[in-house]
Computed example of a mutant assay.
Amino acid sequence: MNMEDFENDNQLGVESEEEESDVSDGELQEAFSKGLLKPGLNIPLQEAKKKVNNVAALKQCLADFRRNLPWVERLDLTNGPVADIVAKADGKTSVEDRGEINAEDDFQREMHFYRQAQAAVLEALPRLQMLKLPTKRPEDYFAEMAKSDQQMQKIRKKLVMKQAAMEKSEKAKKLREQRKYGKKVQTEVLQKRQKEKKAMMTAVKKYQKGISDKLDFLDGDKDKGKKALDKAAAKKIHSPSAKRKYKDQRFGFGGKKRGSKWNTKESYDDVSGFRAKVAHGKGGKKFGKGGQKIPNKRPGKNARRKMKSRS
């Protein structure tokens, strides 16, 4: 078989498959239209169910379900939430009155349910008391909890841990506040003491210098005032020693020290210690500068050797 025969056979095979597929599609469409197809390969679309609103049948079903039972057996209440006491106390309108209830807000939703339950309790309790039905659980009442003891232990443990953490936080907060208050009080006490001490020292100095003769500063603390007064009196009565007087005379009293050796008019006019020979260098060999006597100068080593050889 050459290449041309192979290509011809392939073309014939493709055309035959197309003809067979066209025929089979037509047969399938015809069988589907006649309803002869079996389920499995092709699933026919189901028509949408028609919605029927049979009001009479619904009312009949409701009448069959209804039972004329007393309210004690039903305990059904239909009411709205109680008034918002917090908003009234603050002088504000409640969220319901303003119509701003947000169903997506968890807090508002839960508070609405809570207040609605309160309203139901406030309405149900008087009716139960009028019917002389007990509303409190007896002491010997026993009922199984909806949750297990293990779950309740976990919840109790978590609540105890949360309460302990809150108490610890409150305690730490109180300690911080006490420390701040104690530090503030301590600072105020120190400032007050320093102020009193300064005022007392000022009064003592005034009394010591004779500026004031008032002893009002002794009224606050008699012991301290007495000690300060005794000290001031002792300092006032005590006279300086001879050594102190000599030093004061020689070195002064702590005043101006620079220029203390400068000439004055009196020292310039005083010429009693003036010596002309000493001043002009005519004092002779025996006297040097300033009129001091020059001692005998020892001869040198060579001079002493010569003097020795001569002898």
Rank of each mutant, 00 (worst) to 15 (best):
E96S: 13
Q151Y: 13
I85V: 10
A119G: 08
Q178N: 05
T78E: 12
L190M: 14
V121G: 08
D84E: 02
R156S: 08
P81V: 09
E170P: 00
K174D: 01
K132H: 14
E167G: 01
P81C: 06
P134S: 12
R179L: 05
E123W: 02
Q118V: 12
Q150N: 07
R193Y: 11
K168E: 09
Q129P: 01
T93G: 05
L159D: 10
K162S: 02
G182T: 13
I85P: 06
G91M: 13
Q163E: 04
K157A: 14
R176S: 01
A124F: 03
E96I: 14
M111E: 08
S169W: 01
R127D: 03
K162C: 02
R156G: 07
P138C: 03
K88L: 12
M166R: 09
Q129N: 02
E167Y: 08
K157F: 10
R109A: 10
I101P: 00
S94M: 03
P81H: 01
Q118G: 12
L133A: 11
D149R: 08
R179P: 02
R98L: 12
E104I: 04
V160P: 02
G182S: 12
E110P: 03
A103G: 13
T93R: 09
K88I: 13
L133G: 06
K180P: 01
L131Y: 13
E177M: 13
R127F: 08
Q108G: 00
Q153S: 05
L175R: 01
E139K: 14
F142L: 15
L133D: 01
F113P: 00
A119R: 15
K171N: 06
F113N: 04
T93C: 08
P81L: 07
L75M: 15
I101K: 04
K174H: 11
K154V: 11
A143Q: 11
V160Y: 09
R74H: 00
D105G: 04
V121T: 12
E110A: 14
P126I: 10
R156F: 11
A119Y: 04
V86W: 07
A83G: 05
R193D: 09
E96F: 10
M145L: 13
D106Q: 10
I101W: 06
I155Q: 08
Q186F: 06
K132G: 06
M130S: 08
A119I: 04
K132F: 02
K92L: 10
Y141M: 05
Y114Q: 00
Q118H: 02
